[in-house]
Amino acid sequence: MMNIDLLSLSRELVAALEKSDDIGADAILDQIAGLRETQLFQELGRLTRQLHDTMVSFSIDAKISEFAEHDIPDAKERLHYVIAMTEQAANQTLTAIENLLPVSEELGSQADALSAKWGRFLDREMPLDEFKALSQEITLHFENSQVSLNQIHSGLTEILMAQGFQDITGQIIRRVIDLVQDLETSMVKLISISGRKSSIAKNLTAVHDELPGPVVPGVDDREGDVASSQVDVDDLLSSLGF
C-alpha cells in the first residue's frame, strides 16, 4: 500500500515538475515526507512493542530461574520434611502400640486366671489356704492394673499427639501446591509471550498465602527470625513481660 502511494505520488511529482508547477511539486514533496514519517513511527512502534515483550519475557525468565534456583529446592526440602514427619508419626504410633499390646495382654491373662479361681471360690470349691493366696493375688492384680492402665493412658496420649502431623504436613503440602501453580502460571506466560498471545495467562494467577506457616528445618530457619522451639517462644514472650 505504502509503495503504491509512493509510486503514484512520485509520478504526480514528475508531472508537476515537467509542468513547472513549483507549488504543486512542493505540496507533493510534503506528502511524500509525511508518508516517510508515518512509516518511521510505525517501525518505531513495532520496535517498542518488541522491546516491551522482551523485557516481560526477561522478567518471567528471572522468575523461572528464581524457581529453579530457590523455590524448587525449597519445595523438595519441604516434601522431604513431610516424609520425615509422617514417618516419625507412624513410628511413634507403632512404638506406642507395640508397647501397649503386651500390657493389655498381660492384664487380660491375669484377669482370666483370677476369674477362673474366683469361680471356684464362688462354687465353694476352694480350701482356705488357697483363698488366702488368692486374696493376695487379687491385691497384686489391682496394683498391677493401676500401673498398666497408667501406661495405656500415656501410650494413648502419645498416639493422639502423633496425629498432629496431619495438620503440619497438610499446611506444608498446600504451600508446595501453590508453588507448582505459580510455576505453571509462569510457564504458560512464557509460552504465550513467545506465541504473542499474552491473554491466556491472566486467568491462572495463583492465590497466595501470605502467612509464613510451619517452620521446615533447613528452609525457614535460615534467617534466624523464627522461634525454633516452645522454649524460644516462652523466652520471647517473657521478654515482652508475659
Binding site: P212, G213, V233, L240, F242
Partner: peptide, 23 residues
Amino acid sequence: AEAKREQIIMAAQAGVNGYVIKP
C-alpha cells in the same frame, strides 16, 4: 505453626494470653 518472632510479638500485642507452637 506460625513461629516467626514478629508474629509472636504481634499476637502478644494483640492481647493473646498464651502461645503454643505446633508440633
